[in-house]
């Protein structure tokens, strides 16, 4: 095959790709309202994409940092996987704060987090809604140290769950200011009765 032929073919393949879509969209700085589940604002731009049952925000790609807003999860299901997938523990509306932490640990270990340690567990408010905040660290198999924050609220029989995880030596520190601002602005609106 000659070089020119190959180049032509590659260009054609690339054009086909161009017709498709990229995975990440730009999230401009503004006020956000995710289907009236989460209300928050950001002052900087992020990259965003949809994952299973979650909207993911990232600055440098999820290998290095990720902020997840999970769709409210009903009793008996996991925010991480469809019902049929057994390895993630189900959320239950009667969970105590320690059960929620245990639920978080088991869920994270099934996304390959090792040596999970909690630095703190604090009661917080998301607007009118009571919630718990867990600050934690873990290691990836490669031994890369990660740091994270989980906000969990049981509200209207569902689990509201926001999770931030980032590489600890640079990316966590570089982002924590912006993330804390987002979390401080976060509201879980009272359910509009339909």
């Amino acid at each position: 095959m000659s070089g020119g032929w190959k180049a032509g073919l590659s260009a054609a393949v690339l054009l086909v790709f161009l017709a498709g879509c990229t995975r990440y969209q730009l999230a401009e700085p503004r006020l956000y309202n995710f289907e009236n589940h989460y209300l928050f604002k950001t002052r900087t731009a992020w990259n965003t994409t949809s994952e299973y049952r979650a909207v993911m925000w990232t600055k440098s790609g999820e290998i290095l940092d990720a902020l997840y807003f999970f769709e409210p999860t009903p009793n008996g299901q996991s925010p991480f996987a469809p019902e049929s997938q057994e390895k993630f523990p189900p959320f239950r509306t009667n969970m105590t704060v320690l059960d929620l932490r245990d639920f978080l640990t088991t869920s994270l270990s099934n996304i390959k987090a090792l040596d999970i340690e909690y630095q703190s567990a604090k009661p917080i408010k998301l607007g009118q809604t009571d919630a718990h905040r867990f600050d934690f660290t873990y290691r990836r198999k490669s031994r890369l140290e990660m740091r994270g924050i989980a906000l969990l609220a049981i509200h209207d029989h569902h689990l509201y769950f926001v999770l931030f995880m980032a590489e600890s030596s640079h990316y966590y520190g570089a982002l924590i200011g912006e993330v804390e601002e987002i979390l401080a602005s976060l509201r879980v609106p009272a359910k509009a009765k339909s």
Binding site: F17, R23, Y24, Q25, A45, N47, T58, S60, I63
Partner: peptide, 15 residues
């Protein structure tokens, strides 16, 4: 991360 987000166009990060 660089290989993925700077070289794979479908994985490009807008920011």
């Amino acid at each position: 991360a660089i290989s993925r987000h700077k070289y794979e166009w479908s994985e490009a990060l807008p920011t």
